[in-house]
Design a protein around this nucleic acid. Structure first.
Lengths: 110, 110
DNA sequence: TTTATTTATTGCAATATTACGATTAAGTAT
DNA sequence: ATACTTAATCGTAATATTGCAATAAATAAA
């Protein structure tokens, strides 16, 4: 039905999925990479850098901002977006923990 | 339009997004965690463990298998699913690289 | 062969996501 | 005030995802 049944999962699982979903679009990956490269950025730059229309980029930025992954400061007519470093570290830890799960028993059937 | 314009992004960005999307649903996160915990598993276990219907779980498993994240071995009537360790290491590296991007200049405007 | 058992597939309904044109909002400059 | 610039919002169309009932397929057990 297109409706994720969040209530049957742990908070960690839901958080993991929510953040992963934010990384689940190449435009948002590109935006984050660009923000890292420039360390500060306005939306217009991104529209030029990435090939999508301005409302589309704005929408992706909003999504990242809602999740707290990026921050936005109004600077005159333009907006300065950048990575939320604190949140980034927190997310990094979440993912590293997830990836560091190791199988105890190596005698796998596959 | 619901259609991601993959052609305007790098291969790395697309791969990153594709894998992240697989992690972008709590059921799939839960499946992976369960596979790590048990190191081998049949689909039925997952149906009991997670609260979703059998076809739904089967669909999520297929998605993970198509991406190469998990492997499945037929064992009689049941199927033994497990993590594809090689692929897991590769994905782990991809994400670690992504998370290790650091801002050069700390004098941020935000 | 018939009957369970277990997983995959099909078909479909409901919801979510992606993209963008048109417009609005808010600040700058003239 | 008027014109310009930049980003957000609205509305909408197209596509994707999620979930499950029903069914099929495949093996095992009787």
């Amino acid at each position: 039905m297109g409706l994720t049944k969040s209530e049957m999962f742990t908070e960690e699982q839901n958080r993991m999925a929510l953040i992963a979903k934010a990384f689940g679009h190449p435009a948002r990956v590109a935006i984050l990479q660009h923000l890292f490269k420039l360390n500060s950025c306005v939306c217009g730059d991104l529209v030029n850098e990435i090939g999508l229309a301005q409302p589309t980029i704005s929408q992706h930025l909003k999504e990242l901002k809602t999740l707290g992954i990026i921050k936005g400061n109004i600077e005159g007519t333009s907006v300065c977006y950048c990575i939320n470093q604190d949140e980034w570290q927190s997310i990094k830890q979440l993912f590293i923990q997830f990836f560091e799960q190791e199988t105890i028993e190596k005698g796998n059937c596959c």
